[in-house]
C-alpha cells in the first residue's frame, strides 16, 4: 500500500504522469476508482482483494484523456487489458504509465515490451471459484446447461453494466445501438437477452482478458463472466493464443493458419 502511494506520488512529482487512476475505499464496503491529480492526494490510493474493477476501461474515454497522460494502477488483468487495447490500436506506446502490482510490490512500466515481459512472467490462471464454476458447467448435459443459462439470462434487464465495466467494450457505437436494422432487440425479453449475451461472448472471443469485471458489475449477480472466460479458455486450448499477452498478436478469430485445427467441422 505504502509502496503504491509512494510510486504514485513520485510519478506525479516527476511529471511522468498527470493523473493516477487507482482504487480507493468507497461506500458500503465497495471499492471505487479514484483519479489522483496532485501528490498530496496519493495517500487515498489503496489496494486489496476487493479491487475487482478493471481500470483499463477509463483510458480510452475522452473525458479521462483530457486530464493528461495517465498512470494506471494495474493488477494483472488490467495490465493484460492494456496490452490487448494496444494490439487493437486503441493506445500507443508512451500514452500511459503502468504501476503494476504483484505480490505487494509495485513495478513502474512505461514501454509495451516491459509490460509484455511482466505479463509473461506472471501466471494467468483463473480464480479458483471461476474455474470451479466453469468445470461445473462443463459437467452438465447440454440440456441442463441450456436450462441453467436460460434461467440465469432471463433475469437480465439489460442495464448494460457488463458492457460499461468491460475494457474491451470501447466501441463508440455498440451493436445493440444499431437500429437500422435493429439486429439485437432492445426490450429485456428472454430472446433479446440471449441474443445480447451470446453476441457479447462472441465479440469478446479471443479478446477477453478474463478479469471478471463484467460479472462483478452485474447488479443481479448473473455469472456472465463465465461465458467469456470459457470461450477464452477454449480458444487458448485450441489455437494457442491468449488475449492481452502481446501487442503484436494475431487475433484468433480473424487470422488463419494452415495448421489451425478444423475438428469443429463435422
Amino acid at each position: 500500500m505504502e509502496a503504491l502511494q509512494k510510486s504514485a506520488r513520485e510519478a506525479l512529482e516527476n511529471h511522468k504522469a498527470k493523473v493516477i487512476i487507482g482504487y480507493s475505499e468507497g461506500s458500503g464496503g465497495r471499492m471505487r476508482p479514484i483519479f489522483v491529480q496532485s501528490p498530496a492526494e496519493a495517500e487515498k490510493l489503496t489496494w486489496n482483494d476487493r479491487c475487482t474493477q478493471n481500470l483499463a476501461v477509463y483510458i480510452a474515454k475522452p473525458e479521462v484523456q483530457k486530464l493528461g497522460k495517465p498512470a494506471l494502477v494495474a493488477p494483472l488483468p488490467v495490465l493484460r487489458a492494456v496490452l490487448q487495447l494496444a494490439s487493437e490500436n486503441q493506445i500507443k506506446e508512451g500514452d500511459l504509465l503502468v504501476l503494476a502490482l504483484s505480490d505487494g510490490r509495485v513495478t513502474e512500466l512505461s514501454q509495451f515490451s516491459e509490460m509484455e515481459e511482466f505479463v509473461a512472467k506472471t501466471p494467468t490462471h483463473l480464480a479458483s471459484k471461476d474455474q470451479e464454476a466453469i468445470e461445473r458447467l462443463e459437467k452438465m448435459t447440454p440440456q441442463e446447461r441450456w436450462q441453467y443459462w436460460q434461467s440465469e439470462l432471463t433475469r437480465c434487464f439489460k442495464c448494460y453494466a457488463c458492457r460499461a465495466a468491460c475494457p474491451m467494450c470501447y466501441c463508440s457505437r455498440c451493436t445493440v445501438e444499431c437500429n437500422q436494422p435493429q439486429w439485437i432487440p432492445v426490450p429485456a425479453h428472454p430472446l433479446g437477452n440471449w441474443e445480447w449475451h451470446l453476441m457479447r461472448a462472441m465479440h469478446l472471443a479471443g479478446r477477453c482478458v478474463s478479469c471478471g469485471a463484467c460479472g462483478d458489475a452485474c447488479p443481479l449477480d448473473i455469472p456472465i463472466h463465465l461465458l467469456t472466460m470459457k470461450v477464452e479458455a477454449d480458444i487458448h486450448r485450441e489455437f494457442g493464443s491468449q488475449a492481452g499477452m502481446k501487442v503484436q498478436s494475431e487475433h484468433a478469430l480473424s487470422s488463419f493458419k494452415v495448421q489451425d485445427k478444423e475438428n469443429f467441422i463435422i
Binding site: E88, N89, Q90, S172, R173, E250, H251, S254, S255
Partner: peptide
Amino acid sequence: PLYSTCVGCFLCQSA
C-alpha cells in the same frame, strides 16, 4: 466528432 463508427481496431485487416 465521430466521423465514422469505426473505432479503428483493425481486426478486419487480418480477417
